[in-house]
């Protein structure tokens, strides 16, 4: 074999073994997830729906912060925009479910693009503060634009319909939520391995070096914000499919922090990490829901402990474990 092929073939074979080792459990997990409503109560399915929304939110936040290294603290705002867009698309325009989800994603993405364009002028703490301010402003808008959002009274979301069938409960919504979440997960893997994903990581490491590679840094940054907002918008649209009511209180900085914690706990810059963080931390958060005071303290504590002792998150440790098992 000429050396050129030897180099190309070696790693490919190693990773295809690993891939096969992961494929079986992955397929089993998807099947188990798909069958979840058959075996479990409505509450468990509700929690699963919530976790899947968190998964989509985390994947999106990880794209902009983890992959592209741009600090965005307005994720909850894009999530809220998605919820209202989907709910209103359904209520006022009578859009079917798929239309509502797309509308939610697109409206959020457009605003994300605008924020990304503004954010080009800033970096680090200034960027964090600006996006934080945008998030707060949006929450204020949700609270006060009563004709559209219902203001502090919240908004009743009518049941959405898929192919003419109304979705009335969590179990009916679940296949849609699971399907879309898996789709978004697949898209994330594709993006992360694409030229765009590589460009994100290059920009994260160094603007100047990225420019020297011929990467249009401005466009790439805007794209990161736009994509991340699209994910948050779709997550909002998903929430609207299994929820009957939305109140602006849940669309503030607290939610952004929750998702940020998930991404950090899982491992910034890792798709698997975002997935893992959302599930693990989402479960903790659901368990602590009865005790809100303890909940917030626990979030803070977990975030601090991870930043101090596990700054790379759970993902590297887990992937080492998986690889280790593969050798046995």
């Amino acid at each position: 074999m000429p050396p050129q092929q030897a180099v190309a073939a070696l790693p490919a074979r190693a990773s295809s073994n690993l891939r096969l080792g992961l494929l079986v459990p992955a397929v089993a997990a998807v099947v188990a997830l798909a069958l979840l409503p058959v075996f479990t109560s409505g509450y468990v399915v509700y929690v699963a729906n919530v976790l899947l929304v968190y998964v989509v939110l985390s994947l999106g936040l990880n794209l902009v912060i983890g992959e592209a290294g741009q600090f965005s603290l307005s994720h909850a705002a894009f999530y809220g925009i998605g919820i209202y867009a989907a709910a209103l698309g359904n209520k006022l325009l009578g859009l079917p479910l798929v239309g509502c989800l797309l509308l939610a994603g697109v409206v959020a993405a457009l605003l994300g693009g605008v924020i990304g364009t503004i954010a080009l002028r800033m970096r680090d703490i200034y960027l964090a503060l600006t996006t934080f301010a945008f998030g707060e402003a949006m929450q204020w808008l949700f609270l006060n634009w009563e004709p559209v959002t219902g203001g502090p009274n919240g908004l009743r979301i009518p049941p959405s319909s898929l192919f003419g069938v109304e979705i009335l409960n969590d179990k009916q919504a679940y296949p849609v939520v699971l399907g879309v979440a898996l789709l978004m997960l697949g898209a994330t893997v594709v993006i992360s391995r694409s030229r765009l994903g590589r460009a994100f990581r290059a920009v994260r490491e160094s603007d100047v070096a990225a420019m020297a590679m011929g990467i249009p840094v401005r466009r790439v940054k805007i794209m990161a914000f736009l994509l991340s907002a699209f994910y948050a918008g779709v997550a909002g649209g998903l929430f609207a499919t299994f929820s009957t009511y939305i109140h602006p209180e849940s669309l503030g900085f607290q939610t952004t922090m929750t998702v940020l914690t998930m991404v950090v706990v899982g491992g910034l810059g890792s798709t698997g990490g975002a997935l893992l963080g959302a599930v693990v931390f989402g479960l903790i958060s659901e368990l602590l829901r009865q005790a809100p005071a303890v909940q917030e303290m626990t979030y803070g504590l977990i975030l601090i402990l991870f930043m101090m002792f596990v700054p790379r998150g759970l993902a590297p440790a887990v992937s080492r474990w998986v690889r280790g098992r593969g050798h046995v």
Partner: peptide
């Protein structure tokens, strides 16, 4: 794209990325 490539000062390799990804980025 026009045909000028620079090795910037200050040894800016993409440290977190593999040698392979660095080379691929050069061909972005």
């Amino acid at each position: 794209r026009a045909g000028i490539a620079q090795v910037p000062e200050g040894r800016e390799v993409f440290r977190e990325m593999s040698v392979r990804e660095n080379l691929e980025l050069g061909a972005h």
